[in-house]
Design a protein around this nucleic acid. Structure first.
Lengths: 219, 219, 219, 219
DNA sequence: GATGAATGAGGATTCATTCAT
DNA sequence: AATGAATGAATCCTCATTCAT
């Protein structure tokens, strides 16, 4: 309770006034979910013990079962939370940007950059990704939307949508992995985005230009 | 799953002639490693129980500890075995092919196709990949060699080798995943290879041609 | 063996009122330590199985690990508990007795006699003694104090304190062993005490007189 | 095989000529028994694994069962071997010495001194002692003989033979323990012997003189 | 006889889950 | 709601013993 805590948890650690009216309940649940993601990041989903998660959250082990029926339900919920954040991430990344090529570049770069600034989140993402199929639908949806828009507008020339999604997602995840393993240079995010755009059919020079444009500030 | 199952394997264990010269030892070790990969594929690395592995291999649980000090040592060895196979796979894929673009296309397609013909192997690869960093060095090496050759010969125009490797590996793994989840069409392997080649700087028409050329027969 | 047995103990576990303030915790810990000493007495320290100890204590096997990290930690704690009791024993034996010779005689006799009335305790003492060096410091301290006092007052004439402690402790333990093996007569405790006093330098007649004096009642 | 080996084993490690005619058999048996005693000294009797013993002896684990039906039979045999050595020790210690007081002093001193020169043997002795009752009869016999002779000749004045044996054996074992734990000074053997003789009824001055007399050379 | 691979029962340890307070 | 002691099934691992070579 004193040492670690996600940013969200830390922000909320104010005078503990009247938590009632369901706020306390929501708060503890959040505490547990965030703790779970941190432990997943460290140990992997399979090896994360409930005890370790409650310790990380600063509550007693028994408290866990006031919020989740069992281990499985937690994993479900944590994956959902991660996907939700993922979604927000993408959406927030490129509101007000119309060009699908630019949207894809911004999203790709943000993800790779985020692996630098928040490796815990990135590691959790990769681990959950590797062990739950649930996630795929969530993560693929926004990418697919951009791919379709890009084809309609003639920005992208791809025959298979599935292959396009694989190209984007796969390259981005591999880029995150490179970052997490400390093998990435400063420019890695832009370098990956450039290649992805070219793969989708954008000409080299333009791809590079788009991938190096300043990122719009988050809302 | 494809080669042998626990009961079946036990039945097939014919009286082995040459017990000496360490052949029996090597044989049981192989039995265990192959069984481990099958179980990893089914359950994930973290959730694989030793008991299940020994059942799958058709030996007693205690036998395991004649070959590996503990769980961890097995994972190490199994990853190494997988990487070794991976390497052979790639190497065998494109002997006698000089053009790096063609080499990359052949390798990419073979991996995606292999996920169709041997889903167990593919699943093991993805699971081990997700949980052990060791593997990276092995899998990246042959890709990196082709990327470098391609730049030297002017086939590829990439600024960052790391990004190029991420593009190739990431897209291929994502392609395998799509196959494993049953979302891939017949042409998926070629479609992914096409996009990858374009990303590396090969012109669209040529990329597509190369990615659809008949695969050379394996040696 | 004398106090409680597994089934009986379980039956007697009445609803405990004050669960809080760590009392329950302390109680279970004591239950486990006492059970451990009984099992050590029966089987020896090395051959005592955790399962048997928890059965004896009337708790589930898993409960053990809420109190001790592992087998080793238990042995440490059990030795400490035994030493503690040992110490109390000696101290209680001879409060209000000023003469060091008499104090040594009383202590020696009480130990040998206790091996008759509580063979479980004696057997545990001997077994733990034989396998943990820790114990020595605890058991030697009170003896050493009496030896020093005896020298100061001119009751004992010994050149080496270490040898004096060996004489007292060794003879007493051997005496207990003789009792446990059923080879001791009624007078064994006094007979051993007599020889010990003579070894320390007390004249034969006086040694025998002191060793046969009625024991003071315990406080 | 190359590194360790008892003195006996080392001495015999000559050109391995014709071992036949039962000599090879006896030799391997000896190898195993000596190895067992070394392992007992290190780990205690209960925790000694057959595998470790055969490793120590430099033979394959299966070989063990050509010489002993099972673990228990080994312990029996090893105890017997230890007792046999113990006996030889005592006997050799004081052949040609007629005075029982002197015989007891010589035996006591030799044992304590031997704990200095051969701690492995001493540790094995203490550990086997602590866990097998068999040993007692063997070790007590020679002591008892001296005690009886001493009483007949008026050298010792003790009422209980059992107590006298406890005094001698207990003090000597405690003395060995003190040596093994590094708490003994140079003179410890003689200091213990002095107190033991006094306990048996020998006058102080004479006890001290006898306990400091030069030890006869071993035959 | 010697070897060492294989066996499987038994003991140690972990951990999700329950429940009285 | 929160707590944390207790539970016991599941898993890891050890080791005495057997047996084909």
């Amino acid at each position: 309770m004193t040492t670690q805590g996600s940013k969200a948890a830390a922000a909320r650690r104010r005078p503990v006034r009247a938590w009632h009216g369901g706020q306390a309940r929501a708060r503890t649940r959040t505490l547990l979910l965030d703790a779970a993601l941190r432990v997943f990041a460290r140990k992997g989903v399979g090896a994360a013990a409930i005890q370790e998660i409650t310790d990380e959250a600063g509550v007693a082990n028994g408290t866990f079962y006031n919020y989740f029926r069992n281990r499985e339900e937690l994993i479900e919920a944590a994956s959902a939370r991660l996907a939700e954040r993922f979604f927000e991430e993408i959406t927030a990344s490129a509101t007000d940007v119309a060009d699908p090529a630019e949207r894809v570049a911004i999203g790709s770069r943000r993800f790779v950059l985020r692996a630098m600034s928040d490796p815990t989140w990135a590691r959790a993402l990769m681990r959950v990704w590797g062990s739950t199929p649930h996630l795929h639908a969530h993560t693929a949806t926004p990418v697919l939307a951009d791919v379709r828009a890009g084809r309609r507008r003639g920005r992208f020339t791809v025959k298979s949508e599935a292959a396009a999604v694989d190209l984007v997602q796969g390259s981005v995840v591999a880029g995150m992995r490179t970052v997490l393993e400390g093998r990435a240079g400063e420019e890695h995010a832009s370098a990956v985005a450039t290649l992805v755009l070219r793969g989708l059919g954008v000409a080299s020079a333009e791809a590079e230009a788009i991938a190096h444009r300043p990122l719009p500030s988050l809302p």
